[in-house]
């Protein structure tokens, strides 16, 4: 192309080199973000069967996208350098080239077909109903926390989901208020929790590990949308069963004096109106998270704080400061009341 122009080889080679270097740097950026180390919510390291299936399509589409990117960028740069204005230069006058136009209509058609075939074959698997042996979980989005129910096991928990490895899990997605979206990038693509509808997704986690899989609400849901995080723990079958047994039972009753006083305070401060603590008489509120096994969780305030006594105190003394807009009111608790409640809550294994 354009061989008659002086310096054209330099322009072409230079352009290709520049586009190559830029593409390499961008690829490094993608590779880094796709690395689980340091990126706990990366979408590039699938840890479930369906996520791996989708990953195959994702990789293919990324490669196609990269090829188009390199091609168009290189052509744009080469043409810009090669055909820039020169003294005495002449523009070649032509209106088009039918053969060329047919060719470059076919190129995008082929690319799109190459995308469509694996896309639709993947969907034919992932959109099937969940296998019969799947563990049933109901994930209910609330402004701004997650409620997880195991209807077959009689367990209700908040913001932390326990799953056994290598067993399919079928998640029924619901919402109690606005639209939320359930997203654990390593386990599955996101599906929305739409009020008035029930959506479903299923996957089989393939790796048990101590670190949690991080999830977050992905659909803008109001003031504290950013604070609507959750964790998924994938454990061995034995560990899961042990957890389920404990979680299905009542709370561990407080033994220390301070914690016992906290139990009283829990009633006196009106916490029972909104929260359930299985085994504590009168504590059967359904508005806020079930706290029966609060101390078995690693976080509080929808995954925004680690569960430490100091953080529990911080939360209780002014919930609005941690999660703006949260329904839980500031109870203006005295320091003594805080001491008692922290002791009580931190003992609810």
């Amino acid at each position: 192309m354009g061989g008659s122009r002086p310096g054209s080889m330099i322009a072409i080679i230079g352009s290709l080199a520049l586009v190559g270097v830029v593409s390499f740097l961008l690829w490094m950026g993608f590779a880094d973000s796709g690395d689980f180390a340091g990126h706990p919510m990366t979408t590039w390291v699938p840890k479930s069967d369906n996520a791996s299936l989708v990953h195959g399509v994702y990789q293919l589409i990324f490669i196609l996208a990269g090829a188009v990117f390199v091609g168009i960028m290189a052509l744009t740069l080469i043409f810009s350098l090669l055909y820039r204005e020169r003294p005495g230069g002449e523009a070649r006058q032509f209106h088009g080239n039918s053969r060329l136009e047919v060719v470059w209509t076919l190129i995008p058609v082929l690319i799109v077909v190459a995308m469509a075939v694996p896309t639709f074959s993947t969907m034919s698997v992932t959109s099937k109903p969940a296998p019969d042996n799947a563990l049933k979980v109901v994930a209910i989005g609330h402004q701004w926390w997650w409620e997880f129910q195991y209807p077959e096991l009689g367990i209700t928990t908040a913001n932390e989901l326990y799953l056994p490895v290598n067993r399919p899990v079928s998640v029924a997605l619901q919402s109690s208020d606005v639209i939320h979206s359930f997203w654990v990038p390593q386990l599955s693509g996101k599906i929305d929790n739409v009020p008035g509808h029930e959506n479903h997704l299923w996957f089989t986690p393939t790796e048990a590990r101590a670190e949690p899989y991080l999830g977050q609400c992905a659909e803008f849901c109001g003031l504290s949308h950013a604070n609507m995080r959750f964790r998924v723990f994938v454990a061995s079958t034995g560990d899961f069963e042990a957890w389920a047994k404990s979680a299905a039972g009542d709370r561990t009753a407080p033994t220390a004096d301070l914690a016992k006083a906290g139990e009283q305070q829990f009633v006196a401060s009106g916490c029972v109106a909104c929260h359930t603590v299985k085994g504590q008489a009168g504590a059967a509120g359904k508005i806020g998270p079930d706290l029966s096994h609060f101390a078995a969780r690693t976080t509080l305030a929808s995954g925004t704080l680690d569960r430490t006594p100091a953080n529990i105190r911080k939360w209780l003394s002014n919930p609005q400061a941690v999660k703006p807009g949260v329904l839980m009111p500031n109870l203006n608790l005295s320091p003594e009341a805080l001491d008692k409640l922290v002791a009580y809550l931190d003992g609810l294994k």
Binding site: T43, L53, V54, V57, Y58, I61, F62, A65, V68, F69, I72, M73, T76, I111, V112, M115, A116, T119, T122, M123, T126, S181, W183, P185, S188, G189, K190, I191, A218, E219, F220
Partner: peptide
């Protein structure tokens, strides 16, 4: 072109499960 490429990428519903939102 870059915007167009990423646009076609999320034409695939499974991939859009990652990209959306």
């Amino acid at each position: 072109t870059i915007g167009g490429i990423s646009g076609v990428m999320h034409a695939s519903p499974p991939v859009d499960g990652h990209h959306q939102d």
